[in-house]
């Protein structure tokens, strides 16, 4: 929480109005998002990687295994989630909650985190789905809360 206050202080000092526009603000925000991703991995050993991206496909913060290109994963996540949203809406099933992909070697979850961001999580194939999802939901709430504060 103190990080947010820091952002507000920076902002007031600079006389700015938007948080994410300031470079320092973005840096602090990214650090806070990375903390949330670190917390997720500590709490849930099944998570092998995670990335927060903008709905427009830009990478914001990541804790991905070595060799993963964050820009590609961000873009693919936003494309996939946007298409899934359309699919659910056109089918009259209301608002989309999350996308689950079961791979042979592991699973991928895609979730909205507030209006602007989305969270992509990679877990082991033999992981407990319910447990992983609970942790993922918790991370999404934290991100959404963080962003709501920034928007105020």
């Amino acid at each position: 929480m103190d990080v947010i206050e820091e952002i507000f202080r920076d902002q007031q000092a600079a006389g700015e109005t938007a948080v994410a526009v300031s470079e320092e603000g973005s840096r602090v925000l990214r650090a806070r998002l990375e903390q949330i991703l670190d917390g997720l991995r500590e709490d849930c050993g099944d998570v092998t990687g995670a990335i927060v991206s903008g709905v427009d496909g830009m990478a914001w913060a990541q804790r991905l295994p070595a060799g993963f290109d964050q820009n590609r994963f961000a873009a693919m996540s936003s494309a996939l989630l946007a298409l899934s949203d359309n699919l659910v809406k056109e089918a009259g099933e209301g608002s989309p909650r999350k996308v689950l992909i079961e791979g042979e070697g592991g699973n991928v979850f895609l979730m909205h985190a507030g209006d602007q961001l989305l969270l992509t999580i990679f877990t082991r194939a033999d992981s407990n789905l319910g447990m992983s999802l609970a942790h993922a939901n918790h991370a999404v709430e934290q991100i959404a809360r963080l962003m709501a504060k920034c928007d105020d």
Binding site: V55, D56, M58, A82, L83, D85, N86, Q116
Partner: peptide, 12 residues
């Protein structure tokens, strides 16, 4: 058309 458009940020 079915669209998948989202809000732009930054330079875009």
């Amino acid at each position: 058309p079915v669209r998948t458009d989202v809000a732009c940020r930054g330079e875009e």
